[in-house]
Simulated scan of single mutants.
Amino acid sequence: MNNAEVASPQPDPDAVHTAEIAMRRVRRYLADHADERDIRVVVGGDADDTLSLPRSAVELLARVLAHMAAGQSVSVVPARAELTTQQAASLLSVSRPYLIGLLDAGEIEYRKVGKHRRVRADSLMAYKRRDDHDRRDAADELTELNREMGLY
């Protein structure tokens, strides 16, 4: 998959409620069966209709359900997927011109296909992790300064 669709619908209230219940059950199962590598899942109501899933897929499902339970839309993008600049900007919640500035400044790796830029999803997520970390550090520093000044 070279390109990825990053738009996903916002979960409705029924989906949020269902996701919250499912998330708790899946997390509890994973905690209670920490040694299991493959997890059998009954599809529908028929015990004869089961699937064997890798633990990592069920752990990913738990994370997806957690976001849905919080009312957030969810997109799954393969790490090696190449995104357009608009898709990458949408994932970062920034404008396309701002993203292009980041690309041109060398903050995020990309390649050119003809005149078009393509951003690998894993490079974009690495930038997002660095940026989130830097923001947390700055907020912690401001909090500490406020404490020292007696403003907190």
Rank of each mutant, 00 (worst) to 15 (best):
A4L: 01
E5P: 03
E5G: 09
V6P: 03
A7E: 08
A7H: 09
A7F: 13
A7W: 10
S8F: 11
S8W: 09
P9D: 01
Q10T: 14
Q10V: 14
P13Y: 01
A15S: 15
V16H: 07
V16G: 07
H17W: 09
E20Y: 11
A22Y: 02
R24H: 06
R25N: 07
V26R: 00
V26P: 04
R27G: 02
Y29S: 08
Y29A: 07
Y29L: 03
D32R: 14
H33G: 07
A34K: 14
D35F: 14
R37Q: 12
D38F: 15
D38L: 14
I39C: 00
V41W: 13
V42M: 13
V42P: 09
V43Y: 08
V43E: 11
D46K: 13
D46N: 13
A47N: 12
D49V: 15
L51N: 04
L51P: 06
S52K: 14
L53D: 03
P54T: 03
P54N: 04
R55M: 05
R55A: 06
A57M: 11
V58C: 05
E59R: 13
E59Y: 01
L60K: 08
L60W: 05
L60V: 10
A62T: 09
A62R: 00
V64S: 08
V64P: 00
A66I: 04
A66M: 03
M68E: 09
A69K: 07
A70M: 08
G71T: 03
Q72L: 08
Q72S: 07
S73M: 03
V74Q: 02
V76S: 02
V76A: 03
V76W: 04
V77I: 11
V77N: 05
A79K: 15
A81G: 01
A81P: 01
E82V: 07
L83P: 01
T84W: 00
T85R: 05
Q86H: 11
Q86I: 10
A89I: 05
S90V: 09
S90Y: 15
L91D: 04
L91T: 02
S93L: 09
V94C: 01
R96F: 07
R96D: 05
R96C: 06
P97I: 11
L99N: 07
I100S: 02
I100T: 11
L103A: 08
L103I: 10
D104Y: 11
D104Q: 15
D104F: 13
A105F: 11
A105G: 13
E107V: 12
I108L: 00
E109I: 11
Y110I: 08
Y110W: 10
V113K: 13
